[in-house]
Design a protein around this nucleic acid. Structure first.
Lengths: 241, 241
DNA sequence: ATTTATAAGTGTTATTTTGACACAAAATTA
DNA sequence: TAATTTTGTGTCAAAATAACACTTATAAAT
């Protein structure tokens, strides 16, 4: 099925930047390589694309392979194509960002792939250009989350406003005024208050909320300005490359 | 230099969505294919990546090959990877968006590639998934331009406020209040007023402005809110796929 | 020389949004 | 029942936004 002559065919891989949030810190799901090169070093979960699948399908397959999870929020970040980024053979890697509710994959981490959650701030050194991918993913997440209700993907179905606030504060490494924050969040109309409370983290307890799924899908593209002056927290793209 | 065994190598191409603006309308630079498949149909300018270059280098090479231009604003849009998107042979295409000052490549359009500027609104049918690429590029441009001073890339070094307003109005297919628009633009501090006027489009003439290059580079990432309620003009991403 | 036509350029005000700020309520534990 | 801790909410001043109309400069026409 080779028909264009005189062209070089290249390996194409997918690498997944998988974010989670444990209520306290952002976490990154990494795997320890069991094979050369860079054996025993940490890396993003990845794999080569197959002849009959799209990059998106490959990313989902690879994520499922590791975590067993399906229907996860996932989006294409960027293609990385430095000719010598993989010392073994030229490989173009397309990075995908996945956001998962960490509770869905916390215990029984894959032994096969030697998977482990690392606090984003204590990330080990990664192989190839994977650290750059993570930096870019972090920046992209900060960008998107400032406008779009995307961080909900990191929380379980029921969550509290204080949890949500910790999520935003963690991403931008800042503190937010809780009165202004909850006013803004509630004014989106995306949240449905539940009757029950989460009593884990306080005596009083905090009311649970759920996402209004219909509005969530409709308003995903809406600009909601969750974060004041988001550019303060963003790294100039040119610096990242 | 093949070292990973049992994997399929794939053709990787770059396709360029090249936008211009003629003062009136957005234009798209297309080429007419001189070879099968889809001979004589219109398509984006593209080409295969070479063994020793990155995707970005390939995109710049291909753009230069067509237009002779270098140092053009260019950024990666997305990889398109449907296994059958190219009927001849599986090819993954990475789309790049380029913004050029149309005056730098208006006359002497490449005969070799049969290049032509089309008004974006009167785009012919394109081969493969190129129309989808253009849609996505348009949406991405609308998104970025709402916040970042990116559209200047489409104008010559010296430009007037009314030209700039036409540029924004064209992109969002809307009208803007010129008092509010110029106030907002001038308040960014990005523009340096020139002593001379453009007398092309009015008797009174409109003062030229130039970009303050230092500020431009510094503030590129800043959120400037050029367009009120930009989500009104954006297509939901899920609709685009 | 005067008038006319056309696009450029600018200022005010009401409304909305934002950001800064502090105290009361609920419930567990001492 | 008092103390502690976290949740939950209201006000007000400042800033940003959106709506709105008239004057100015100049070339072309009379």
């Amino acid at each position: 099925m080779i028909k264009y002559s005189g062209q070089t065919r290249i390996l194409v891989a997918v690498d997944c930047i998988i974010f989670g949030f444990d209520g306290e810190n952002y976490k990154l799901l990494l795997v320890q390589r069991g094979f050369a090169p860079e054996r025993a070093k940490w890396s993003l979960m990845g794999g080569f694309i197959r002849p009959d699948e799209t990059l998106e399908q490959a990313a989902n397959r690879i994520l499922k392979q590791l975590t067993g999870l399906e229907n996860v929020y996932m989006e294409q970040l960027q293609a990385f194509s430095s000719p010598d980024r993989d010392p073994v053979e030229r490989t173009i890697a397309v990075a995908f960002v996945a956001l998962i509710d960490i509770h869905k994959y916390e215990k029984q981490l894959s032994k096969e792939y030697h998977a482990e959650w690392f606090p984003l701030k204590e990330m080990p050194h990664l192989i190839f250009d994977h650290e750059k991918m993570v930096e870019l993913a972090k920046n992209s997440l900060r960008y998107k989350a400032a406008f779009h209700p995307i961080l909900f993907e990191l929380l379980p179905e029921k969550f509290t406003i204080p949890q949500l606030q910790a999520l935003y504060e963690g991403l931008y490494d800042t503190t937010l005024d809780k009165r202004n924050f909850s006013r803004k969040l509630l004014s989106t109309g995306l949240l449905i208050k539940q009757a029950d409370k989460d009593k884990e983290s306080s005596k009083k307890g905090a009311f649970y909320y759920k996402l209004d799924q219909n509005r969530y899908l409709d308003d995903f593209q809406a600009f909601l300005n969750f974060i004041p002056k988001p550019d303060k927290f963003l790294i100039n793209e040119t610096t990242l490359n």
